[in-house]
Design a protein around this nucleic acid. Structure first.
Lengths: 304, 304
DNA sequence: ATTCGATCATACCCAGAAGGTATTGGTGAG
DNA sequence: CTCACCAATACCTTCTGGGTATGATCGAAT
């Protein structure tokens, strides 16, 4: 048996007439007769009573008609769903994120992706950079977000955004009263730094820049992420360099100030990584969304 | 697309290797490759990632695998169910009965049929003889039970049973005290007769036999069916001729007595009618059950 | 009663597609 | 660097689905 047999059978059952059914199917009558005979023979069941006025379903035929319609609609559904899956519009995307990336870009990105791909289930996993690469290779995730990523043999990188570094200070702090803050001012005040793990990180590069400028920053505390860092700033532990996106953290008494004479590379990138050669259309669609996001001026980015 | 494509696809997906799948399908590898390519092309979706180690499902492929298995099992189910329907083991049988036939034969017959065809839903309709024939022609029923049926052009008859006529009398009635009852005794006692409608009926023949014997029975009351007739006997309205099967009606004070010298044809038949040329396997199975029943000695018939 | 029209079935032919054999191309392991 | 393995390609054969022409049967209308 064959889907063709079902199509033909349904047509004959509906028309109750082989000739009309054949016309509807755009074939001639004799082959249709033969196909119906074949179907009956294969099933070993008489599906139609032949009358001089046409074809009439037997009880078994009526049952089979229901089943055939059922099967045909299921086949149609299956092709549609599979095609949507093939276009990246249906399925699942496992995404790894790290602590502070969830502050700004990720929610907006996911929102943008969701609006165009509502039937893709996005599953978030919190992982460090090393864990992300491991998980990518094991296919547990399809894409990961992190900073300071370099392409590998099997891992591709796509930039999401570049953020300036701002200085989080208490509003009553000495630096907050200055008209402008210079890079060199960092050497005079205790610094809260993060992250502790997951080196190399942006903070290592900042410390390197300090060394090049001839001073060692005073590190008052090392913490795990931006949220904790800003919390310590609020508690008077000193000042803290944070990416722009951390400004969504509104701690009472904490303000975010730009530095006026920052050296080159005094900024952090946010990128995502994926398996090179991953053909998944969902990944492709996601990376396209990322690319659109990157090219959109921050002012136009949708609010999450 | 074709059920063959689904079968092949599932095999390749399960083996993750075209060669092994081809072996399992008893075809050679190249045609299988081509069929998979065709399927992918028709869907417009990449279902497999070709690796040097074999074939690996894409996400869309995994979805399609589920759907394909689903469809295949549905097809299998459909053929099985249709085949059972074609053997008269699944479906529906509309049966017409009349008042007193339900007393004995019908329940036993239906029980016997049910045990061999548990998935055939039997629907009972109460109809007169004329209504049954009408309903048969309109295909609202497939079989009808009645008495004194004669074959018609388009209606076949199958005998179910022949029953003797007994005389229902009160135990304190004069006739009940006689050692034996003769046919001629009927002329001396008021008779309750049934049915009123649906002539010709067995009672007309009985009255005819009386005439031939040279007397007119005294009809005290005409009622619709045997149940009412026996009830009136219990109420002292006279005696009533009933088919054997009415003895299942145990009215207080009523006994059923045989007549010792009944003329030929002093009995009633129970038959069923059906459309000549009805090919329904369910009907065929039912008529076979009826035939078995007819050939079974009454003592061996299952109790309903 | 007979003819005509409609319907399904049969006979026969052709083309296209499914399957087979032989071979190539590419990749990873020894 | 070679071999083993896998999928893909090329080409041929066979089978079957579809087309045309025709037959068989039944009902309706003349």
């Amino acid at each position: 048996m064959d889907l063709r047999h079902l199509r033909y059978f349904v047509a004959v059952a509906e028309e109750e007439n082989i000739g009309r059914a054949a016309a509807r199917l755009h074939i001639s009558q004799p082959p249709l007769t033969r196909q119906i005979q074949q179907l009956e023979e294969e099933l070993g069941v008489t599906l139609f009573i032949r009358t001089p006025r046409g074809m009439e379903l037997t009880q078994a035929g009526e049952l089979f008609l229901e089943e055939a319609r059922n099967i045909r609609s299921l086949v149609e559904q299956a092709t549609e769903r599979t095609q949507r899956a093939g276009q990246g519009k249906l399925g699942r995307l496992d995404v790894a994120i790290f602590g502070s990336a969830i502050l700004d870009a990720i929610p907006k990105l996911l929102l943008a992706f969701r609006t165009h791909h509502p039937d893709v289930k996005v599953v978030l996993h919190t992982m460090t950079k090393a864990e992300q690469i491991e998980a990518l290779r094991q296919r547990r995730i399809s894409v990961g977000f992190n900073r300071m990523l370099t392409p590998l043999e099997d891992i591709g990188v796509q930039q999401v955004a570049i953020e300036d570094l701002l200085l989080a200070v208490r509003a009553d702090h000495a630096l907050a009263r200055q008209p402008s803050i210079r890079f060199a001012d960092l050497q005079d005040h205790p610094l809260v730094v993060f992250p502790t793990g997951a080196r190399p990180s942006f903070i290592d590069r900042v410390i390197g820049l300090c060394s090049e400028s001839g001073f060692q920053p005073q590190i008052s505390q090392e913490v795990g992420d931006a949220v904790t860092g800003v919390a310590l700033v609020a508690g008077g532990f000193g000042v803290c360099l944070v990416p722009e996106s951390a400004t969504t953290l509104q701690f009472p008494g904490v303000v975010y100030l730009p530095l006026t004479d920052t050296p080159p590379n005094f900024c952090v990138d946010l990128s995502c990584i994926y398996r090179k050669g991953d053909q998944s259309p969902i990944l492709a669609a996601f990376l396209e969304t990322v690319d659109d996001y990157r090219k959109t001026p921050p002012s136009l980015r949708a609010e999450a």
